[in-house]
Simulated scan of single mutants.
Amino acid sequence: MPKVWLHWDHKTVRERGPDALLRFRMDFLLLLPHGPRIVLEVDGSQHYTSHGGQRPDSTKYAEMVAGDRDLKLAGYEVFRFGHDELEHLDQARPLLRQFLTGLFRLYEVAVPSA
């Protein structure tokens, strides 16, 4: 899956300089009105297993949660989805609709009615 590199976030560059957070990348970045920065991650088994998904890998998992902590300390909110939740469009669409509705309500983002 293509990644978004954090140094493209104009707010991070403005606040911390052009080299801020260069080692981080994410699946999706939502820059909401009034400043909230929302990271959406879609995790397959490669995020927490080794040997082709055959064995749990606590080191990989620790690196992932450390990255989440770093993002949160830098002012990002991180939300994770499991690959299986989004694999099939008929299941993913209602899940994402519910999630985004709740997210926009939480951050008071007006959504035009369809």
Rank of each mutant, 00 (worst) to 15 (best):
M1R: 06
K3Y: 07
V4I: 10
L6P: 00
H7C: 03
V13A: 01
R14C: 04
E15Q: 12
R16N: 10
A20P: 02
L21D: 09
L22R: 15
F24S: 13
R25S: 03
R25D: 03
D27C: 04
L29R: 13
G35K: 14
P36G: 01
I38K: 03
V39W: 00
L40E: 03
E41Y: 06
D43A: 08
G44I: 10
G44N: 13
H47N: 12
Y48I: 11
T49H: 07
S50G: 12
G52N: 13
Q54Y: 06
Q54D: 09
P56W: 10
T59W: 06
K60T: 08
A62R: 15
E63Y: 08
V65P: 05
V65Y: 05
G67I: 09
L71E: 06
L71S: 04
K72F: 02
G75P: 01
F79H: 15
R80Y: 04
F81W: 12
G82F: 11
E85R: 02
E85K: 01
L86P: 07
H88R: 03
H88F: 07
Q91T: 15
A92T: 13
R93M: 09
P94K: 01
R97A: 06
R97H: 14
F99A: 00
L100Q: 07
G102E: 01
G102W: 07
L103D: 04
F104D: 12
Y107G: 05
V109P: 11
